[in-house]
Every structure is written in C-alpha cells, then in structure tokens.
Design a protein around this nucleic acid. Structure first.
Lengths: 226, 226
DNA sequence: CGCTCTTTATGATTTAAATCATGGTATTAC
DNA sequence: GTAATACCATGATTTAAATCATAAAGAGCG
C-alpha cells in the first residue's frame, strides 16, 4: 500500500539509491508522508530542526527574507532531493524557509531516527557529503557572482544554472528569476526583454525557453563591450 | 620526529580529533607537509583535485576571481581546518584558489588515500558532514546578504562573522574586508570610517577592533532610519 | 635616512540599478 | 462575462555605490 510508494521515492533519491531492500524497508517505516498545496510552507526559517525531508513529488523552494522583507530564493528541490538536512545535522534552527511551489508531497524522517539510521551507513554518509559538497560549491560560486558580477551576468548565470538542472524550459516568472539573481522584478524584465530581442531566449508568461545557450554563456562570462 | 608534529596537527583538527592512536598514526603516515610563504598559492582555481588539506600553522584564504579579475574572498582557514575538500569529494577541479596569508604550513593528503581512509570511518564522515553543513549554511546566508542587503549592512555582517570566528581583533585591511563584502576598497573605507566615528570599531593599519558588537549587530540587521 | 609601497582618507563625478509610475495583457475567480 | 489578480512591459527619476583623482601617513627596504 502506501509504503510501496514511500519505498519507491526513497529508492529514487540519490543518497539512498544504493540501500538494500531490507534497509529501504526500515527507512520507509520511519518516513511519514505529507501533502502540501502550492504556496504552503514545509517549515519556516527559525523552526526547530525536527525533520529531515525528501521531495516525493512536486517542487519545493528554499528561501530567506532580508531584514527589510525582500525574498531571496536559495534553491529549488525536485523529486528525490533532500532538504532541511543542514539544520538536522547541526541541530540548529532551519536557516531558511521551505515552501511548496506546486502541488507537492514530501517524505519526512524524524531527526533522531535519521541520524541513528545514518550512524551505521557510511555509504549514505559519503553520498550526503557529495551532495553537500556540490551545494557548497554552487553556493560559493553564487556568492562570488552576487558580489562581483553585474545584473545582466547574474541573470544569465541564474538561467544557465537552472537549465543545467532542469533543461532548457524553465517554469519561472521574472519575479522568481529576480529573487534568485538578487535584483528587482523590473530589472529582470528589462534584461530578459533584451535577451528575447537577441534571440537568446523565448518566453511566455511564467515560462522561459533557452534558445541559444552558447550566447548566454558568453554573456555570463564577460562584459559585452570586450 | 616530524611525524610527531603531524600527529599533533591532525589530532587538533575537528574532523579527526576523535580518531584513536592507531588511526592517527596511519593518517599521519599518509600526510605530507608543505611550507608556504605569505602570498604563495596552495592551489589554483581549476587545478586537478589531487590533495586534501589541513592547515597546520598560519592562515589560508580561499578566493575566486570574477570574469573581470576582481577578487572575492570566500573564507579564511586557520590551524586545524580543512580545505580543498569539496573538489576532492566531487573529483572536480578546485572551485577556488587557496593562498597563504601569513607564513604557513599545511598538511596534504592524497585524494585516493584520503577517500579510502574515509570509507571505513563513519564518525569522520559524520564530522565532515557537520563541517560542510555549517559552511553551506554560512555560504547561503552570505548569498542572501550579498543579494539583498546594502553595503553598510554587508560590511557589518562580515565583521560580525569574522569576530564570531576570530574574536574582536581582526587582522584585515579595508581592502580585504571589501573583498569579503562584495564592495570596493573606497566604499569599505568610507563605511568603516563612519563606524569608527560612531565608536563601534577602533582601527589601525591592517587591524580592526570591534568595540561595540551590539551596535554593530543592530546596524547589520536593519536600516538605521527605521 | 630618504625612497617606495601599502594602507587609509576624502572629494568630485559617473553610472548601474532601484524606485516610482502607469498601462497592457493573459489568467483565474466569482 | 465581467471583475480581480498576476505577469510582462516601458518610461522617468532618484540614489547608492562605483569610479576617478589626489593626498597624507605609517611600514618596510636599500
């Protein structure tokens, strides 16, 4: 019944995909499922880190607000991806909020259950290290970009990053792209209008298709005037 | 002889501090020492990830350059801290350069040696997860700051972050603070001159002392006009 | 000791991007 | 089917911070 479904989800996720059947069953027994409507929050920035999550279906975005209330999107997570793990490992409040984008189902595992499960599974730990390493790399590259690149390049990089993960069709509004690139909606619209004119992207309401990745890459790497 | 020294360094580091004597000796045998003059590079952005490092003595900074050559300082590492690990785990080129700040000694362990050592040490893996988790949290918070906060607040946060790690006396020039905060040297000087006038910091050439952490925290959290 | 180099300082000017403002056009809601 | 809402678009204005320019003072060096 429902546990079969959980098994499937767990098996699908990179960090658990190498578990044997017995372990999968054990883990599935620890997991509870939760359904979320679009816009609903899985947890809020500052909540106690009681649960470790995997996306089963749909999409979750991690976001943080500035002191003045502006939103910044840290990442999107799709089926099979874990989130909330940093807080769980450190036993500190979640450092960001997690919000369902679409109709979404997640699997949650209680902090203690997860940690004790992990204690005897070095392979899983190594996989987690891999995932965290990759995210750290991305986060640092992104910091650098936000610190020293200008908007046009930041937006280009955001688009490239997204397309590397999701393919050439990106289901995001200008507002969301702005919130990922550290700029305003208006500026994102302006920049992307130019990209459209240049034949680099095509877009309709809430959806952007990357047409010319090469040009986009050039743009992201150097100022046009060089 | 020299191995005693290595042992000491390894034991000092958070991720290895729980190893037993036998394991420590084994690991020390794998480690080679390297001395660096101030300004010398341990590795460059893009190099093959052949070595995993721990700082033995001195200080190493991780930095990245923008397409236009501007420098961005990702982090400083002191004695007992690991660096270069992300590249080693992912087996991808180092994502940033590592440069000795002062007269520095590091211990290097070959990628394969380190990974096979790790395979049978889940406790070490869990510790690494902890460190990576903490760094990821920091990197994401920093991205948010760079994306949505203004210079004054970013600089305040940089100072707070540094003082949380190193104490109230910070051995950095305005230029370095600027490179960590994603701004220019002039702007960092201006902002810090104001902090000085406000009695929040005291400073002499290349050194800054935080006098009023509370005020600094207020400044970092909200716009003064509110 | 004088010379050079680095760090701090400060003013003037420019510029990229934010902000303010307004309008059109799909989509969804009632 | 009309109203309300979300998204895209563009112009005008403002502003924060970069850039350009110049200078002084502390450190290091021959």
């Amino acid at each position: 019944m429902q546990n079969i479904n959980k098994l499937h989800v767990i098996k699908q996720s990179f960090i658990f995909s190498r578990l044997n059947d017995e372990e999968l069953v054990e883990l599935a027994a620890l997991a509870s499922e939760r359904s979320l409507a679009p816009g609903e929050f899985v947890f809020w920035d500052g909540d106690a880190p009681d649960w470790f999550y995997i996306v089963a279906e749909g999409q979750v975005k991690a976001l943080k607000h500035s002191s003045s209330g502006k939103e910044f999107i840290i990442a999107f997570f799709g089926p099979g991806e874990m989130f909330g793990e940093v807080a769980v490992f450190e036993n500190k409040p979640y450092p960001a909020s997690a919000q369902a984008v679409s109709e979404t189902r997640v699997l949650g595992i209680k902090r203690e259950d997860f940690l004790s499960f992990l204690k005897n599974r070095p392979q899983v730990a190594l996989r987690i290290i891999n995932v965290l390493g990759g995210r750290l790399r991305d986060a640092q590259a992104r910091s650098r970009d936000l610190a020293v690149e200008r908007v046009e390049q930041r937006i280009a990089r955001t688009l490239l990053m997204l397309s590397a993960k999701l393919g050439t069709t990106l289901p995001f509004t200008r507002q969301e792209i702005a919130d990922m690139s550290g700029t305003t909606t208006e500026t994102a619209i302006r920049v992307m209008s130019r990209l459209k004119e240049g034949g680099i992207i095509r877009s309709v309401r809430g959806k952007t298709v990357i047409l010319d990745e090469l040009k986009l890459r050039l743009l992201s790497e150097g100022p046009p005037q060089v």
